[in-house]
Simulated scan of single mutants.
Amino acid sequence: MAVRLFSHELSDLCLGKPALRSLSITSTVADALEVLKTSGDNSVSVWSCDREVAGDYGDDCRCVGRVCMVDLICYLCKDEKLASPSLALKEPVSVLLPKIHGLVLHVEPSCSLLHAIDLIVGGAQNLVVPIKTELGNKRKQHQKQSPTVTIHKGREFCWLTQEDIIRFLLSFIGLFSPIPAFSIGTLGIISSEILTIEYHSPASAAIGAISRALMDQTSVAVVDSEGTLVGEISPFTLACCDETVAAAIKTLSSGDLMAYIDCGGPPKDLVRVVSARLKERNLNGMLEHLTTSLSCGGFSSSSSSWSDEESTGVQVSPLPRSLRHSRSMSYSARMVRGAEAIVCHPKSSLVAVMIQAISHRVNYVWVIEDDCSLVGIVTFSDMLKVFREHMEPIA
């Protein structure tokens, strides 16, 4: 049964997924920002029809990367960009693309699930898969109204991500018994290679770590002086904010940044602090941009609208505001809403951690001890390695 599961074609996983939004490699950063703000998507694909850029694929256009709001935020965190964001937004979108190749790969709909897992374990973030449906007249008419939907030679494309594959495997989790019931500690998938920053440290010191976390699809842990996990600066949360968060990252401490991106938008007192510090540093371009954005209601911070208890089926106890480092004994706690630090214990089962991560729409779960000291992190990639190793003898 498990062998047949891994032989599934990726077209099966694309059912119901929306077509990719796309931009040309010749677009600007402002174009990317506009699509991210108006489409409701967390990311946009960037395409090239230039053989030197796309590679030797004949006449085919290729997806050469993926851009999200976090790429744009980190790009704007440089002083020269904050001084004149209007000029920064005129730069080509290619400045936002990571220099590492292989993060986005094209695969055919007939590609097997097993091969897809191998690609993701090997470092791919997104797989670009043609959607196997004929485009009817209504769809073509819709395409005229939505030019950012990717269609090439009559085909649309979709993303497949680590989360998509984990969700699919979870639907057939009984086939892998007894492995899903083993603890993550027993399976040896807790990684101690984590990105951290101290609570009182400037958030700007985490810019490089945020970029790395985005690439690795993890997060930056915010800890106190004793190594206790207080919260996190998560690319998944930042992706739901707007570009003005760059100003907060450059001017606030890590702890204050968590409060700034907390559910409901930035507190007024922190907005005043950010504005004052931008003015002190003569970063008037971003100050004006921030003022305009806030007056238009531009900032958005998305936390889950559903009940955590209902979505996970377990007790969830959020910690108080990060200024009060109360410790929670609930391993499924959101430690700061909006900072979304989802945690588990080394003795938590693999299937429980999978459900936690999927329920909260993150690719990882932090691992802590009873005293909330940080042990490490478990990622979707590590989980996929377990399932892949389970198939090794018969693959």
Rank of each mutant, 00 (worst) to 15 (best):
A2M: 12
V3N: 12
L5Q: 07
F6H: 12
S7H: 12
G16W: 00
A19T: 02
S22V: 06
I25G: 03
S27V: 01
A30Y: 05
K37I: 01
G40W: 14
N42Y: 11
N42I: 05
S43N: 07
V44G: 04
C49H: 05
R51I: 14
D60K: 14
C63S: 06
M69T: 13
L72A: 14
L72V: 15
L76I: 07
C77M: 08
E80H: 11
A83E: 14
A83R: 11
P85R: 03
A88T: 04
L89I: 03
P92T: 04
S94H: 12
V95T: 12
K99L: 14
H101K: 15
E108H: 13
I117A: 05
I120S: 00
V121K: 06
G123W: 07
A124Q: 02
T133W: 09
K138M: 14
K138V: 11
H142V: 10
H142I: 10
K144Q: 10
K153H: 11
R155N: 15
L160A: 04
T161C: 05
I165N: 01
F168H: 15
S171G: 15
A181Y: 08
L187Q: 05
E193M: 09
Y199H: 15
H200R: 08
S204E: 07
G208T: 08
M215Q: 11
D224V: 02
E226D: 10
V230S: 02
I233Q: 02
T237I: 07
T244F: 13
T244K: 02
A246V: 06
A248Q: 07
A248L: 08
G255W: 07
G255T: 07
D262L: 10
C263A: 11
G264N: 11
P266E: 08
P267I: 05
K268L: 11
K268Q: 12
A276Y: 06
A276D: 12
L278C: 04
E280Q: 14
L283N: 00
E288S: 12
H289Q: 09
T292R: 09
C296Q: 11
C296N: 09
S304P: 05
W306Y: 12
W306A: 07
R321H: 13
H325P: 03
S328P: 03
Y331S: 05
A333G: 10
R334T: 07
G338A: 08
A339D: 02
E340T: 13
C344L: 06
K347N: 07
L350K: 00
V351F: 04
A352Y: 08
I355F: 11
A357P: 00
N363H: 12
Y364C: 00
V367R: 02
D370S: 12
D370P: 01
V378I: 08
F380A: 13
F380K: 03
L384R: 08
K385D: 04
A395C: 13
